[in-house]
Nucleic acid binder design. Structure first.
Lengths: 211, 211, 211, 211
DNA sequence: GATGAATGAGTATTCATTCAT
DNA sequence: TATGAATGAATACTCATTCAT
């Protein structure tokens, strides 16, 4: 392992160290109330150091989303590349993947909505922004692709795969957000999994071409 | 009309004047960038006056949500009180009502999510908060009630009406938010209505008990 | 006196209050080391209030220059409008005026050089900037005008009045700056007046057309 | 050449390398906007290395002035040591020397004024400071010495040579600064040489004892 | 000597909120 | 009631300088 490579690795470790701290602080306080000093403190670094690794507060926050988008895309591609699945089975695999992604980071949807606010987008560097867009589009495309065979074989209803992907994603994110909201308002227990399961069940049935 | 009552009416008019101005400013700039001075200016009042009618910036913003929640509840109750509708017809009426509510104020969902962030809730007065919760719960209950007959008659699947209400609401808000997001990222045209229609179609079919 | 006018007057008083405080603090610490908080403290106001009257730190500093430029221009115009002065007498009046301006504010030249740095100019509002330029140009023109008659009557050498004005101003500002510098380096006594007098004497003689 | 000496030479080369880079960066960005990292980058060194050769940013900047002061002093001494010059001729040689020094580094005066600000002086090491003072005083003395013979021979007016040196230096620096300023404000062309020539002409005539 | 990653003190500016009038 | 001038807490970000390697 050359010196160059070791440095690169060290640098990546620092980034992760900061991201982990940022996630903790942002989760607890939300974007606005969390200060860079809080995060630096949590990461046991000085504020200045954060800026060696992230352009600004927005980009640090957005990095959390980037990470999850990467995880999401990999999961989705896995669903697509699995062989010999019937359309219904592949749909089931998609749903399982979404549960998995949610488990990996339950803040996924909240992060992503913050990310998409126009104010935030303005403060990101172009490079960063295009990475986000690319991952975002690929993920959607991956979801769409899952529906394709089913549509072609006339098992699923005759909609454009992209439209189905939008609806599927909207349903997923809607349930996640809504269940998070209910917690704030009703201080209920966490029904996320159950609701999501029921939602997916309805979606799956609604997706099938009526006989 | 007594003096007391006239004063009350005058006061209410001021509140509305401020709310209208606030809506314009918040829509244009978003919560963070909008300043109380902006709103005061738009309402042709002084900043101090705003605080005679609203406890603080958060509560002013939340008032926008309150207003729409009231509209929503009335619409939903209307769907419920209409007589002689078959479950499928009532479901259709619900969907139409949601389109209508969205037209009344397209920012509905965005407002509501801001409202539900824990940061915001902390700054609201208890009175206000309970009004919100009440309306919120009543609305959900109204939606749930729409499904009841269909479930009883075994036309709709056998889920708890509240669960179906959650899913329906999540689907609606998910689509609204997601389509808004896509505009930021892809600068696409506005496909909201189409996506919503397709989503509702799938939902309606998925809701029906399989034969 | 109407309410409007009284408010206007009150506002102007505040501006002056701030300017006086700013002058004290900037004189003592220089532009960079002086903080807005220092100035606010000196003015017995809060930092925020400074920004109600001045756009930013640069513009507050520049206001000091504006004030002196106004004084300078009035003095110079006075020299020009005085009647029945022979060119030599008018030149003498100019020199006296410069002594007077220096007494009014010995930091005049130092302020003005800070003002003219390009970094500073960028931070000024266009309105402010054009006021500065206008006063600056008028002052130069006023000096030039003082030389005109003498040139026409062939008492002074045959140079363009503007060129003479430049040289005169350069000599004045050069002496002021240099004597200020010497104080820092040599901690000498203040020879400004003597040096300026001698410099003016040489200039006056050099200005006369050789026989 | 011993090892010691070779090291010494190597060290001096590094200093020059840094000074050259510093000059480029400071010229382009000014003192405040120029960062030590900029300079390090320009010198193809690391920031830390700069501090092995210069105590701090101020002293690095001041080194530029030191360099030009050395050049100035040599030029002035050359004027003094030239033999068989009549006072008027020696005065002319002085003026030529000043043109030459300006050509060597047009930022000379701006640097020197920065140098003389009290803020800067506080940050210099005593050694460095006394070098500056020494060169500065010697240069003034050299200028004064140029006038001496002319005064003694009653060709120049009867002022103390040091006073004449001050005035001469003030005139030179005043013109340089003023012409630089005019460029910022009026975006005029560069009239420096012309103005300086005219200024020197007036000075030379004013210096001569009236008959 | 040279490096360059890490430091952390330092500050202009904003804006929700107040309160004397 | 209404005003709007004044407040002052709060914070992202910079960059000269250091020091372990």
């Amino acid at each position: 392992m050359g010196i160059q490579e070791r440095k690169e690795r060290e640098k990546e470790r620092r980034r992760q160290q900061i991201i982990v701290a940022a996630k903790r602080v942002f989760s607890e306080k939300g974007f606005n109330k969390a200060t860079m000093e809080d995060i630096a403190h949590e990461a046991e670094l000085s504020p200045g150091t954060l800026y060696l690794y992230f352009k600004n507060k927005e980009e640090l926050y957005a990095s959390l989303s980037l990470r999850i988008l990467q995880y999401l895309l990999i999961s989705l591609e896995h669903v697509n590349t699995e062989k010999d699945l019937k359309p219904e089975e592949r749909l089931q695999a998609l749903m399982d993947a979404m549960f998995d992604v949610y488990d990996f980071d339950p803040l996924i949807i909240i992060n992503m909505f913050h990310l998409q606010s126009s104010e935030t987008l303005k403060n990101l560097s172009p490079d960063f922004l295009s990475k986000i867009k690319e991952l975002s589009q690929k993920s959607l495309a991956a979801i769409a692709s899952i529906f394709e065979e089913g549509i072609k074989k006339e098992i699923f209803i005759d909609k454009h795969p992209t439209a189905l992907a939008d609806i599927f994603w909207a349903l997923f994110s809607g349930v996640v957000l809504w269940e998070a909201s209910k917690k704030f308002i009703n201080e209920d227990k966490d029904y996320l999994k159950q609701t999501l399961e029921a939602a997916f069940e309805i979606f799956a049935r609604g997706l099938k071409r009526p006989i």
